[in-house]
């Protein structure tokens, strides 16, 4: 086998078949995919299906705590989980730039396999295309996912009501900062790694103790601030949080101080925000803390009636300020 991806790997001919057979299939050994038919045939039972798709482009492909493969599985699994669905099947489509080392591709495929095993989902269909050098940046992955939602479960961004508690599952800003650290080539004395993780099992545990979880959302791009604003807007409520309840790891704070970034706006890939009826908030919180991806869970605030569409934060010194959506891109700044 060659060392790098060639255009011929995308030709549909012999090399394409070899690539699928040698590199892809060994990672996704399941009866549905193994048939190699034009489409996967699935048997689904449930009240309602959840179906989502997302594309993953990340530079660099590999970073502390994960890689584009783990991200592509977890991101789509989490999107499903945030509707309360139990994720079942994924499809994955790869756009590969000519010249990508096969070893890198293999590493990413193995990482996808591990993430899908952890999330207990199966990759049942896939596609690869190879494009000329410069037409893509090394590797783009698109994953789509299907899950089933139990009868009676209604979790949506528009469901928050005044009085509900807002729970955050752990420390913020780790994924975005880990990527920046890699990109900027920063050295570290402490470990900073992406929090990228599948959250479906955590959600399943939460649903065991409460049927009054109103909203779930993973604060990815745009960070916690953006997610809270989305929820406040969709539900036409206000949200008040307390700065002191937010937890940020020391190294992550260090990077933010140096580069002038606000951690509230930095992306996460393994955290969730839950809006829960006050009656159930303690039991949900306790259940979350028992799960490895929820050990740092905290009630960070509550939903209020007014002003609608706004998020307020009680600051560490006791003042109050608006937390707005992120506008534009966060760039390292000097002022």
């Amino acid at each position: 086998m060659e060392d790098n991806i060639l255009l011929a790997h995308g030709s549909g001919g012999k090399l394409s078949h070899q690539l699928i057979k040698d590199l892809f299939l060994p990672q996704y050994d399941n009866p549905v995919l193994a048939k190699l038919d034009d489409a996967a045939k699935l048997r689904l039972t449930g009240d309602c299906l959840a179906y989502t798709t997302d594309s993953y482009v990340v530079n660099p492909l590999f970073f502390k705590g994960g890689d584009i493969g783990r991200l592509a599985v977890c991101g789509t699994v989490n999107d499903l989980a945030m509707t309360g669905a139990k994720p079942l099947y994924l499809t994955a489509s790869f756009i590969i730039e000519e010249g990508l080392p096969l070893a890198a591709l293999k590493k990413i495929l193995i990482s996808m396999k591990q993430a899908s095993e952890e999330a207990e989902v199966e990759v049942v269909a896939g596609d690869t295309k190879v494009v000329e050098k410069g037409a893509a940046d090394k590797l783009f992955i698109t994953t789509s996912g299907i899950g089933v939602i139990e009868k009676g479960l209604n979790i949506a961004g528009a469901n928050a009501k005044a009085g509900d508690r807002v729970i955050l599952s752990g420390d913020i800003a780790e994924h975005g900062v880990a990527i920046l650290v890699e990109r900027e080539g920063m050295e570290l004395d402490v470990e900073i790694k992406s929090d990228v993780a599948p959250l479906n099992h955590l959600v399943a545990q939460m649903l065991k103790v409460s049927r009054k979880i109103r909203c779930l959302r993973d604060p990815t791009r745009g960070g916690l601030a953006t997610t809270l604003n989305e929820l406040a807007t969709q539900s036409e409520v206000g949200i008040r949080i307390e700065e002191d309840k937010l937890s940020i790891k020391e190294g992550v704070r260090g990077v933010c101080e140096i580069l002038g970034l606000d951690p509230l706006y930095v992306g996460n890939e393994g955290k969730l925000v839950a809006v829960v009826d006050p009656e159930d908030s303690q039991s949900v919180l306790e259940k979350m803390r028992q799960h490895p991806y929820g050990t740092g869970a905290q009630i960070i605030g509550e939903v209020v009636e007014k002003p609608t569409g706004r998020v307020f934060m009680k600051t560490s010194i006791g003042g109050s300020r608006i937390v707005d959506m992120l506008a534009g891109e966060q760039l390292p700044r000097i002022c």
Binding site: E187, G251, V255
Partner: peptide, 10 residues
């Protein structure tokens, strides 16, 4: 020089 803020070296 190399400096450290919160464990991050720069």
């Amino acid at each position: 020089g190399w400096v450290e803020v919160g464990g991050v070296v720069r």
